[in-house]
């Protein structure tokens, strides 16, 4: 039995409405305006992947949190597990954007990277 999914492509702001038909291993995508959309539709049918953007605790910095992102997309179903794993992570200022703040999160082969600079706290 072919299975049909109606999705909104999230790769770019255009938000094309995709139709993904999955018949066993065969997946066909329509509605995309560009190849990135097709690739997204295929992946979505198999295992939806998402980037994770969040913050981690920071010590000694000008602010108590540091913005971070995943170096690659993670399975959507693991995002909350990844969040829980990040609860215990604490970075020490100074940090530069791009620095790795946590390696190989949940053993998925994905690192968490700083997306902002964090200077040391100024003392008044």
């Amino acid at each position: 039995m072919p299975e049909t999914l109606n999705l909104t492509c999230i790769v770019c702001p255009r938000g094309c409405r995709l139709t993904v038909v999955k018949d066993g291993d065969a997946v066909s995508v329509s509605g995309h305006a560009c190849p990135r959309g097709e690739a997204y539709g295929r992946q979505e049918a198999v295992c939806p992947l998402r980037s994770l953007t969040t913050t981690v605790r920071a010590d000694g910095g000008a602010r108590p949190r540091l913005a971070v992102r995943s170096s690659a997309d993670l399975p959507l179903s693991r995002l909350l597990d990844a969040m829980a794993a990040l609860d215990g992570v604490v970075v020490r200022a100074p940090v530069r954007a791009g620095d790795v703040v946590a390696r190989d999160i949940l053993g998925l082969g994905v690192d968490m990277l700083a997306t902002d600079n964090l200077e040391e706290a100024r003392h008044e």
């Binding site: 981690v56 605790r57 108590p64 949190r65 909350l80 969040m83 829980a84 990040l86 609860d87």
Partner: peptide
């Protein structure tokens, strides 16, 4: 409370 304190 603060974020990152578990409880999810």
């Amino acid at each position: 409370g603060p974020s990152k304190s578990g409880g999810r």
